[in-house]
Amino acid sequence: MLKEVTTHTTRIRAISQLHRGDEIEARLSVGPAYDDVVIRRGQVQETAPGIGVVWIMDHASGMRKAINTDECSVWRVA
């Protein structure tokens, strides 16, 4: 029997709230009538609050990716 897994997400408004190893999603707003679309998901590797960038190890590609917080919203996944 499989157990259903539920995830809880919390929007991160300041990069300083993130720590190495946190699981996050980057979401892009596609329009006023649509929900945000998850474009990246992975573990935080490094943050640069001064320039609004978070680097993650992307689960889909297995590569290190930069997320610009001016272009998308960041959500912690728990």
Rank of each mutant, 00 (worst) to 15 (best):
R27W: 10
K65H: 07
H59A: 14
S61K: 07
L18I: 10
E25L: 02
Y34W: 15
R11L: 13
E46S: 13
E4V: 14
A33L: 06
P32S: 12
M57K: 12
L28T: 12
S16P: 03
V38P: 00
L2P: 12
G31S: 11
A48R: 14
A26K: 01
I12H: 00
E71Q: 13
G21A: 08
A60C: 04
A14T: 08
V30I: 14
E23V: 13
V74E: 02
M57A: 14
S73W: 07
D22A: 00
G21T: 01
V53D: 02
T10M: 01
I39K: 11
D36V: 07
A33W: 02
W55I: 10
M57P: 01
V77Q: 01
K3I: 11
Q43F: 07
A66W: 08
V38K: 10
A48V: 06
I15P: 04
E46H: 13
I12Y: 01
A66D: 11
A14F: 02
D70Y: 06
L2H: 09
V77R: 01
G21W: 08
D58Y: 07
G21S: 06
A33H: 03
H59P: 00
I51F: 04
A78L: 04
E71I: 06
V37E: 14
T69V: 11
R27G: 01
H59S: 15
V44M: 13
E71N: 09
R27A: 00
S29A: 11
Q17F: 09
A48D: 15
A14M: 04
S73P: 03
A48F: 10
T47G: 05
V44E: 07
S73T: 10
R13A: 05
I24M: 03
R64I: 10
I51T: 11
D58K: 02
V53N: 00
S29E: 15
T9C: 02
S73Q: 12
S29L: 13
T7V: 14
C72L: 07
H8R: 09
R64Y: 05
D22H: 04
V5C: 07
D58C: 13
H19P: 00
V54C: 03
G21M: 10
C72H: 07
V74K: 01
I12N: 02
K65S: 05
A66G: 00
S29F: 07
W75E: 00
Q45T: 13
Q45M: 15
D22I: 04
I51V: 15
P32C: 06
D70W: 01
K65D: 06
K65V: 08
A66H: 08
L2M: 00
R13Y: 04
K65Q: 11
R76N: 08
T7I: 14
Q17E: 15
V37R: 13
I24P: 05
S61Y: 07
G52I: 04
P32V: 13
N68L: 09
D58H: 12
W55Y: 13
N68P: 03
H59K: 08
T47K: 13
I12G: 05
M1S: 07
E46N: 14
G50S: 09
A78D: 15
E23K: 01
L2C: 00
V74H: 03
K3D: 08
E25S: 04
E46V: 09
E46Q: 15
N68D: 15
